[in-house]
Design a protein around this nucleic acid. Structure first.
Lengths: 211, 211
DNA sequence: TGGTGTGAAAAGTTTCACAGCT
DNA sequence: AGCTGTGAAACTTTTCACACCA
């Protein structure tokens, strides 16, 4: 039923959605030009991307802000609330667990887990930290679709294995290591060290080589 | 002097470096095949990428682990320590500030800043939080090359303006908003909400459409 | 034999330009 | 007049295949 959307487009849709959500509620229409400026993307790209969602624009007028949001959310599967568990409740895990915006974004935290007995039982933003031993059973029971790994690198792979065993469809990995998972589990990495290092390259180039 | 390296390659170099750093110190050589598996990348890509750094491999043998690390670091400009400031010391800012690995990675935290008077003066991992009013002068004085934005979205743009004024070359933005900066300032975003939403798309597709 | 370096083909992505609708 | 939707061209990135060397 739904046609395939190119990867590059899939990665920009959340960005458009974010821009649309940031618009004052009085705005009911927006042009590809303006959305492009706000998202930092060429207007032609915006039009090509949005045309993949079906013909939502009106020539000479623009796109309906509300319609666009609904359609993007639908395509991203964010119409309900995807249950998610967070593993590793250090500073980063706490930051994520405390992020109250998830509800509005289509996600719901259904469990926090940590290996440190001192952390188990403590409360973080309406949740109680549970022991790792309970991860698989609890995540499966609560139908967790997403597992977020905020553990130290050395235990990230075994955490991923547990999450896969618990039946999650996707893993978001913040540990600075590449983890492997079965084919039916999608893995995405977020690694600031790497991002910083990419910045390093650009600083270096600007100082030395030209460009 | 240094030739241009394709963007896609620049983004993979930190990944290779990370894999190399994770190798036991007894390993002195590695093949493109093994590095590819560890980095989750096709071996031919690895070879093309590494050949951009000059001919470091030995046919029939592989690459020298130490040489490779040195050359990648050199190309990423990570030979010294890039000074960096962190703005917004909430859970995320604290997580970053406490990350002790920066030194080994080529970065050094030279300042933490927050707008909240209650936070100013508190200590986080060997640093004292300073007020926003001091940001521009302090960052300039300490030659900060990188500014990390961990503030809430509504103040992210003005924070970016201050960082640009302070003369940073690059900004790493964790706030869920697209910020604008002068052309000579490189901006990179890290946004977990967006990453989660991309995962949403894949979950959705697996359940409904095929693929 | 094992594994790099690289040309050429294939796939994916961006940009341009403009027809066509309101 | 204004702005979308889209074909065709340009560019980037990936993949394949294999010559070549230790």
């Amino acid at each position: 039923m739904t046609e395939r959307i190119p990867d590059a487009t899939v990665h920009r849709l959340p960005l458009y959605l974010q821009c649309l959500e940031g618009l004052p509620s009085s705005r009911s229409r927006i042009s590809s030009d303006e959305l492009g400026v706000r998202a930092g993307v060429n207007a032609a790209v915006v039009r090509k991307d949005l045309s993949r969602l079906g013909c939502l624009g009106v020539r000479g007028v623009g796109y309906g802000v509300a319609d666009l949001q609904i359609e993007i959310r639908r395509r991203l599967g964010l119409t309900g609330e995807l249950p998610m568990v967070i593993v590793g409740i250090g500073n980063l895990g706490t930051a994520l667990a405390s992020f109250s915006g998830f509800g509005a974004q289509g996600f719901r935290v259904v469990g926090l887990f940590d290996a440190d007995p001192a952390k188990v039982g403590t409360r973080v933003d309406r949740h109680t930290v549970e022991p790792m031993a309970d991860l698989v059973e609890a995540a499966r029971e609560r139908r967790a679709a997403i597992g977020v790994i905020c553990t130290p690198a050395p235990v990230a792979q075994e955490t991923a294995d547990l999450l896969a065993e618990a039946g999650v469809s996707s893993i978001l990995n913040f540990a600075p290591i590449v983890i492997r998972a079965p084919d039916h589990v999608e893995v995405r990495r977020v690694d600031f060290s790497n991002e910083l290092r990419v910045l390093g390259y650009h600083i270096h180039r600007r100082r030395n080589g030209g460009a």
